[in-house]
Structure formats: C-alpha cells, structure tokens
Design a binder for these strands. Structure first.
Lengths: 179, 179
DNA sequence: GTCTATACGCCGATAGAC
DNA sequence: GTCTATCGGCGTATAGAC
C-alpha cells in the first residue's frame, strides 16, 4: 500500500476547493500552492505537472463513486430515493470530487468526460434495478439537474436552502411513479 | 434601432462556437479573431475588451430566452412537453447561446449565473401553470439534466443519437404524471 | 473599420540551493 | 521534501498606421 504524505493530500484538497469555489481558470498552480500552504516548487515535487494533479483528482472521484454506488445499492428505501437525496449538494467528499471534476469537463478535458460517462452508466444500471429503465432515466436526469444547479453556486452553504424542499418534492413525484 | 455590422455578429458567433466546442479556456481573443476571419485588432474595435464580448453573448441569450418562453407558453401539447423536447441539444440559436453561457458560469462568472437563475425561474413559472408546482420542479430538473449532458459533448451531432430516445422516455414518464 | 506591432502580466515548468 | 529564482510562452490590451 503506497504511503501518501499529508502534504500531497493537502495539495489535492486545495485544488479541489479552488475548482469548486473559483472555477478552473483560477485554479492555477500558484493559487493551489498558496492555499495548501506550500510553495509552487513544493507542489511540483508531489505532482510533476498539472495533468498529474487532474489525474489524482479523477482517481479520487472513481474511488468515491465506487463507495457511493455500493451505498446506493444497499439503501433501505431504494436506490432511486437514495440517488435523488444524494444529488443535493451536501459538501460530502463525493460531492466535492464530482463538482470539481465537472469544472474540468467543461473545459473540454476528454479523460474527465470519459470518467463521467462511465460513472453515470453504473448509476443508471443500479437505478433500473430499482424502478425499471424508464423511470431510471427520469431519475438520472433529475439528479443531473440537481448537480447542474449545485455547480452554479460554487459550493456555498446558503445555495441549498431552497433546494432541500425541492428534494422532498422530487421524492414525492418519484413515489407517484413507483405505483 | 442600432445597426450592427455583420463583422460584429460574426465575431460573436465565433466566440459562441469556441465556447461550445473547446471550452472557456480555449476561447481566447486570438482564437475568436481567427475563427471570425478578422485580426485581433479588428475584433477589439467591435468589442473593446473580453467582458464586452461576454455581455453581448448574455444579451443574445436573454433575447432568445424570451422568444423561447413565448413559444413554450403557446405549445399545443403543453409547455412541459415543449420544455422537455427543447432541452435536447438541437443546435438551435437558443441551445447554442445557452450552452456557451454555461461555460462562462462554470468559470464563476457572477453576472452569467444571475442571468441563468432568472431565466430558469421564468421557465418554472410557465411549467407550473401547465402541470402544477411539483411536477414542474421535476420537469425543470430533468431539462437541466439534459443540458448538463449536452454540455459534455461539445455540441457534436452524434452525441444526441442515444438521447433522442431518452426524450421520448421522459415524455412517457411525464404523461404518467399528468394523470 | 481593420490591420500590425508591441507592452506587460500571469501561468506552467525547470534548475538548483538547502 | 521544500524552497527561491528564473525562463519561455501565451493571453489581454494599447498605440498607431493604413
């Protein structure tokens, strides 16, 4: 098991946070280093170039997506309800990695786009087991819509105030579709 | 009525196309000028700085969103069905302006985010008249989800192949909710 | 109205000290 | 393992010719 220095994780956390809060363009090596409390040279010891930073973020995302899919499958009230609830911004490690990666996909980063497609497909498969293929599509798009909106708030706390009620509404609609 | 030179529109079109196809980062003044077939200096005669280019794009978006909302209200099979159908990438002027502006919002451009929120609210109001507030929310999020996915394809034609079927599925789900 | 030339800053990355 | 110093390149913007 490869040991990973704390500084490395701190840098990755800083990169993630900047992507979420100020967007891809402002998530420069200088900014990341400053936020992580290291020098640019120090940062580049852990990640030889920016692409390595992105790769590490995508690996983190894959790992968290796997864990999340397992939880989703095991959810007591069904994976569809779990999926809708978890599509709300809750500042979880998974939320953070997902939204941060979204910023990169928007900048036409191909590898990031491929990862998203793969994760989405897995989710869709699990959803279909719960509610059938058609409603699964509807639920999947609703979840994407929730993320789409979360993305525009820069990971702020207040932005969710109105949307927690929305999740309840969506769960209600889902209930009508189950019957 | 202010006359707008063709060159100006060509520049704006080029900016929009680059945002869609290669993302915000690559939509530089150099790239926009080249694509529009003018020099950088020529570009900067029409738009004194990059912010002016963004402002013009947002004005175009507002105009198209107004037209679209009117069509939505008048749709024969209801605004909800119209909304879902029109959330699929169809390379319309509205689609292009919307997705292009999305790229800017992702980069934490505040004014762009405000415009989006306003447009979304108007849509939601129209949808609620058709299907009630709860289903309106569900439909709204599904539409956002469709756009969220369109965004990851860079405005390519092929990307829609699978999603046209998805729209039919969503319309079917909507029908079940109307009853 | 459109062009070329140029100023200037910031970003990613390298070299090398400690 | 972390730092400072520095380079080359690109992106925005200005000046001024045509």
């Amino acid at each position: 098991m490869p040991r990973k220095p704390v500084a490395r994780d701190a840098v990755l956390d800083a990169f993630e946070a900047l992507l979420i809060e100020v967007g891809e363009r402002a998530a420069t090596l200088d900014a990341v280093a400053k936020r992580a409390g290291v020098s640019k040279g120090g940062l580049l010891y852990h990640f030889p170039n920016k692409e390595a930073l992105i790769t590490a973020l995508l690996e983190r995302l894959d790992l968290l997506a796997d864990e999340d899919t397992a939880l989703m499958k095991a959810a007591p009230d069904g994976s569809a309800a779990y999926f809708i609830r978890s599509s709300l911004w809750a500042d979880t490690p998974m939320d953070r990695a997902f939204v941060a990666a979204t910023r990169l996909a928007e900048v036409a980063h191909e590898e990031t786009r491929r990862r998203f497609a793969a994760i989405q497909q897995r989710w869709l498969d699990v959803l279909a087991e719960d509610v059938g293929p058609d409603v699964a599509k509807a639920v999947s798009y609703m979840g994407d819509g929730l993320y789409f909106n979360a993305i525009f708030e820069g990971g702020q706390e207040g932005g969710n105030a109105g949307r927690e009620a929305d999740v309840d509404i969506l769960l209600g609609v889902l209930d009508r579709l189950r019957k």
